[in-house]
Design a protein around this nucleic acid. Structure first.
Length: 609
RNA sequence: CGGGAUGUAGCGCAGCUUGGUAGCGCACUUCGUUCGGGACGAAGGGGCCGCAGGUUCGAAUCCUGUCAUCCCGACCA
């Protein structure tokens, strides 16, 4: 390929629309163009990268025994109603683009394919003898993201590899899940990415075990917590840790009972309360009032208690709420703080904001127009473990000191709701402390269990002759996101430094002075020779000055550059590695022998021998 | 959806405070000189100043509304 024929437009300045390095570089180097928020054109260079990533994915999936297919992107609403996800995915903050056809039938544009694949499985897989099966595709996904961001990092249209496996039993699912884990590690290594596997929340996809693969990068959207010994790594929304020990409350006259009143005028925050009375935040039980909205059923008021020095992890809370009420009310759509306005809209009396205690009574909800009439009460371990604490008295300007759960006549529903923090002691070894890293989620594998197969009545005949729902797993890789994550991890002040395995071209041949026929001829000859040897070569045949071509070459990030310059007449060329040190003079006739073994090695990325 | 910012040539920006009919750099076209790290000179093409309404003799500039984009939070590969 020749640069003059590549439709290449590079920009000297950073486009204003881009914030992070990889996004700026992909725009500047002419890899992508934005059409609308979260919607990008992959220009020829980008498409070459994406095809290379896809090919690595394909090879590893095939090697792991998966079957490639291509499933419909237009998906009937009925299918999604059967799995119970239509409302959750289209209403409110749902992310599915949906439309009607000329007959008025509702359709969704596939954000994921569990429904489609489950009915296919049910249709085709009748017997345990056909199992296990692992079906995958590499395809554009559509998601109406609440906030598209950072170019290809979070697009509304993006390329994803998604795979779905079917099994007769849980052990078989676990085997395929482990095989996918291995395949994923190989994929990221082959693509030249440093990725870490972390425990993850299953989110809207559901199911039991799930693991994310994170490309470590400062610009990552996720916070990862890891132990120094490498034995623990988790997304912060999932991570567990040991909380700091609380400062014990000095025993008072009624310590451990219902608590002594304490006048705390104007002290509505834990900080103010502690500052005013010489307390430690770990001696306080703080109470948060939230409202959970479901697919159907009345909004549910929540009363959540945590130790004063701890932060709420909303993901854990959502999971706890769903576990308790999801079966009756369907998907949890939203969690929001209860405000004075919301109370007024329900016709309820104002509540003493800033002075809540866990003993807040249900009768305060009795007059509500549409809400459930009792609180769902959840208490984090840190709060439940306190034998005596300070909490709000549920009266303005008053707290209680020395209260206890028994003393308040409460029996807490104890769950883990606290957000683990960097610096916390690890559960597996209290001597280790969690460290924070930022990451870009490029892959996620799930053991779905029988969630979808049960909902959609997708069954097979077991060895014993009974009809049973499939055990299922699903496995995703954000192909386009991975490509940008690679840039985020591999760039410098001059531009991109593609890992060779996914670079659009492996070698860039630059005649320093294209007007010199000797240089031009030799450059042409070397390009042809490399191409003949199966190397992806780009020849910069533009009549530009050498400096321009070098700058563009660095920006584009092609791993090897062959400069055909002053030495051309003597048959000498220069070999430069992008981001490497210095250059090497070679005889042109020896170039292939020198370069080929190196390229072959680099095509394996970070994969160990 | 809430909070913040910005809309002027393909890209990056100035001009707006104090209204007088649009400018700089890059990119593009032509010519000349140059030619190993984004050259120089000359000539040129390209703008409904986001859109609508208002104020005014006159609006990129002032007022009102509206739309769009980007950033921060809830979503996820």
């Amino acid at each position: 390929m020749r640069v003059s024929r590549l439709m290449l437009v590079t920009l000297r300045e950073d486009p204003a629309e881009a914030e992070i390095a990889s996004h700026k570089l992909l725009l500047r180097a002419g890899y992508i163009r934005r059409l609308a928020p979260g919607i990008y054109a992959y220009l020829p260079l980008m498409w070459r990268v994406l095809r290379k990533v896809a090919q690595v994915v394909r090879e590893e999936m095939d090697a792991a025994g998966a079957l490639e297919a291509l499933l419909p992107q237009l998906q009937p609403a009925d299918l999604w109603r059967r799995s119970g996800r239509w409302a959750g995915y289209t209403a409110g903050e749902g992310i599915m683009f949906h439309l009607e056809d000329r007959q008025g039938r509702q359709l969704g544009l596939g954000p994921t394919h569990e429904e489609v694949v489950t009915v296919l499985g049910a249709d085709l897989l009748r017997s345990y003898r056909q199992l296990p099966v692992n079906l995958y595709q590499i395809q554009t996904k559509f998601r109406d993201e609440i906030r598209p961001r950072f170019g290809l990092m979070r697009g509304r249209e993006f390329i994803m590899k998604d795979a779905y496996s079917f099994h007769a039993d849980e052990a078989c699912l676990a085997q395929t899940y482990a095989a996918m884990d291995r395949a994923y590690r190989r994929i990221f290594a082959r693509c030249g990415l440093r990725a870490v596997a972390v425990e993850a929340d299953s989110g809207a996809i559901g199911g039991s075990a799930s693991q994310e693969f994170m490309v470590t990068a400062e610009a990552g959207e996720d916070l990862i917590l890891t132990s120094p010994d490498g034995r623990y790594a988790a997304n912060q929304e999932r991570a567990e840790s040991l909380p700091p020990d609380p400062v014990l409350l000095p025993a008072g006259p009624r310590s451990g009972g219902a608590g002594e009143p304490l006048a705390t005028p104007g002290e509505t925050t834990v900080e103010q309360l502690c500052a005013g009375h010489g307390l430690d935040p770990s001696q306080v039980v703080k109470v948060l009032l939230l409202l959970a909205r479901f697919e159907d059923g009345a909004p549910q008021p929540l009363l959540v208690a945590l130790r004063g020095d701890q932060q709420l992890n909303e993901v854990k809370l959502s999971n706890a709420v769903t576990a308790r009420l999801g079966a009756q009310h369907g998907a949890l759509l939203e969690l929001a703080a209860i405000t004075a306005e919301l109370l007024a809209a329900q016709g309820l009396d104002p509540l003493p904001f800033g002075y809540f205690g866990p003993q807040l009574e249900d009768r305060l909800l009795a007059g509500s127009r549409g809400w459930a009439r009792t609180f769902l009460r959840l208490v984090d371990h840190t709060a439940a473990d306190l034998t005596a604490f300070v909490c709000g008295a549920n009266r303005i300007d008053q707290h209680l000191v020395g209260a206890s759960w028994q003393g308040l006549n409460l029996s807490p529903d104890v769950v883990d709701l606290r957000a683990a923090q960097p610096g916390d002691r690890c559960c597996h070894d209290p001597a280790q402390r969690l460290e924070a890293t930022r990451g870009i989620e490029v892959g996620h594998i799930f053991q779905l269990g029988r969630k979808y197969s049960t909902a959609m009545e997708a069954c097979f005949t077991s060895e014993a002759g009974s009809s049973e729902p499939f055990w299922m797993g699903c496995y995703g890789i954000g192909v386009s996101r991975l490509a940008q994550a690679a840039v985020e991890q591999h760039h410098d002040a001059d531009g991109i430094r593609w890992p060779l395995a996914i670079a659009p071209f492996e070698v860039l041949v630059v005649p320093a002075n294209a007007a010199d026929p000797v240089q031009a001829d030799l450059a042409e000859h070397l390009s042809a020779q490399l191409e003949e040897a199966g190397v992806d070569v780009l020849l910069d045949d533009r009549p530009e000055r050498a400096g321009v071509k070098f700058k563009d070459g660095d920006l584009l990030g092609i791993p090897w550059r062959v400069v055909v310059g002053r030495g051309a007449a003597e048959g000498r060329v220069e070999l430069v590695q992008r981001g490497g040190e210095g250059s090497r003079d070679l005889q042109a006739h020896g170039l292939l022998d020198h370069l080929l073994p190196r390229i072959r090695r680099q095509r394996r990325g970070l994969l160990e021998e």
